[in-house]
Write a protein that binds this DNA or RNA. Structure first.
Lengths: 342, 342
DNA sequence: CAGCAGTTTTGAAAGATTTCAGAATGCTTG
DNA sequence: CAAGCATTCTGAAATCTTTCAAAACTGCTG
């Protein structure tokens, strides 16, 4: 920058004002400075700038699974908006490990990010650990117990309720559930919706029809296997996330159980990564009935709210209230659900 | 930091050495400083540090598609290694737009990242634009024409050659190709491998069997539709990337054409995002025969080489030679390829 | 042409760290 | 106990910007 100033025959202060597009510098000098910038191929030092103005125009985003279609879409939504507003995003994969999550948060704080987007793996999110630092924070997807801040997530209870009603309306009474780990809010809420629909229909949920997977393919596979081996197996399977649904399908296909003829399958999360809205679920055979979360929108909204917190008065005022924002999900009925066998 | 120093009754220089774990400070003071750090909940300012030491411990990564399974896996591989080595990664989605790519590169340079990982959309990659800045750079996936630096990619020619041979060995002679855009090296190389295998088998590639898609689902769909409508349609379809393969399957299913009974399908890119190595391709019906790139490994290697360039002598010496690193791909024969109908 | 009100331009401080030359301290040795 | 030598500690400079008070300039008015 000093070089630019020298070449243009002005002070660095002038160069600074020109670069930041502030007015108050004559057209003549402006041009000279710009030429010098070109000539020297000068790129302003964002680091020094950040130090001085105390903001980095950087958002940290940490999530438990970086390459899962759901999270990849959330990331895309968030990144899109951020880039549009001149922010960059620092991506951190916590790999579902609480320790790594904390260490990532710690480095993000050291890096003085302007805000953090977090899908916390920690059910008892250490609000007290985090609170002292004044970094704007928006959670997404999961709601840690006792957290009182902003979080944007899917309306899981409702979505699950509607999905269950779909199964019931087809005539299913013995519905097997493959839930996620306890204390992860998404799983708890989906369970709640399921229970509500069942009890409204005066159906009881049997203990042996209730399984907990680990939100991974392996878990879905195991649970489905166990469920189908019961003396009186369920006529429908409701799986609480995308990975587990794949496990379920695999288990059924290996066991030679027809879907939807013998058993219906309904899964959470549609399969849309990178496909301009086209869904993979239609490519399966049978095409899967799923609950589609608006993952892209979820990322975008979370980012929008976060940016709103960072620079208030910049539009989106209304969003900045603390609380839980719930995005609707959509039940996409396709071929994997049908009336139970007689 | 000044506060910490004051509380511990030492100079900031001492605090600095303690924090950086350098030796040369007595055990007594070390402890006092650490206590002060705890007491004040002090996190060192990475920004100021970066300014002073002239490195940010940040890697910029720009790619044309952030949520596509292939790129998501590459990202995961790269991030894994980076995190492990204490680097953070700034993610940029160029959305396949040359202008956005350039603007992202520009901000990465301003942000003084220590290195850049790039899958360039620009076939005539502006090496001269980039060269003057001394930022270590490693390309991945695509090789822009005339680029002379390090790039890590799949051995596309060989992979495509072997895939084609598989089709030929099944007895196919009329093979339709759905290639990517011209000048994108991955597409060109895959085409080369295909041509080689064909000519070795003394099969000629007819003009009307050769189509160019845009590497998107829509393109694969269109091309497949056109190919199947020919008077004498191909007995096998070879699609050059993942998205287009989905389009192909969709077209076939809509047209009611049986696979592999009437036409065999072979696609590039396996479907493994976030699934611990389990492949979606097995979930389709029929299960897809694919060429599986080692996407995770590709990201990891690219990052490894980049970090090697950044701090030489830190192991991985051998990698740092400029040139093209080619990772092997694996042909996974499943159910979508079979001998042609008689 | 002095005085004045704007408008441009600049010099220097500040931001949080690292680095390094040198000051201070403690210990050994002759 | 003075000298010499390690070892520990510190003060100040340097990194690249932005900011702001003040200086310099411009054009007008009386």
């Amino acid at each position: 920058m000093r070089d630019v100033a020298r070449l243009a025959g002005v002070s660095v202060a002038t160069v600074s004002t020109v670069i930041n597009g502030k007015n108050g510098v004559s057209a003549r000098l402006t041009r000279r400075v710009q030429q010098a910038v070109q000539a020297l191929n000068y790129h302003p030092d964002h680091v020094a700038r950040s130090l001085r103005v105390r903001q980095t125009h950087t958002i940290g985003m940490v999530m438990p699974q970086i390459a899962s279609p759901f999270f990849a879409e959330v990331l895309r939504g968030a990144e899109d908006l951020a880039a549009q507003q001149g922010y960059s995003v620092l991506i951190c994969n916590s790999r579902g490990d609480e320790g790594q999550e904390k260490s990532h948060l710690s480095t993000l704080i050291s890096r003085r990010v302007d805000g953090i987007l977090l899908a916390s793996e920690d059910p008892h999110f250490a609000h007290h650990w985090f609170a002292p630092r004044r970094v704007p924070l928006v959670l997404f997807d999961r709601i840690p117990g006792g957290f009182k801040g902003t979080v944007v997530t899917t309306n899981n209870t409702l979505a699950s309720y509607e999905a269950t009603r779909h199964l019931i309306s087809l005539g299913h009474q013995r519905i097997g559930v493959i839930a996620g780990p306890p204390d992860i809010s998404t799983s708890d809420e989906r369970l709640e919706g399921f229970r509500k629909a069942m009890s409204e229909a005066s159906l009881l949920v049997r203990e042996e029809y209730f399984k907990r997977g680990n939100y991974k393919l392996e878990g879905g596979y195991q649970c489905a296997l166990e469920l189908t081996k019961l003396a009186l197996p369920p006529t429908a399977l409701f799986s609480f996330n995308y990975e587990m649904t794949l496990g379920v399908m695999r288990a059924l296909s290996e066991a030679g159980i027809g879907c939807p003829k013998q058993v219906s399958v309904l899964g959470f999360d549609d399969f849309v990564a990178g496909l301009d809205g086209f869904s993979w679920a239609t490519m399966f055979s049978p095409k899967l009935t799923t609950v589609a979360q608006s993952s892209y929108e979820l990322g975008r909204r979370a980012m929008q709210i976060l940016l709103g917190k960072i620079s208030p008065g910049d539009g989106e005022e209304d969003e900045s209230e603390d609380g839980i924002v719930r995005l609707p999900a959509e039940l996409r009925v396709r071929e994997s659900t049908a009336p139970p066998p007689p």
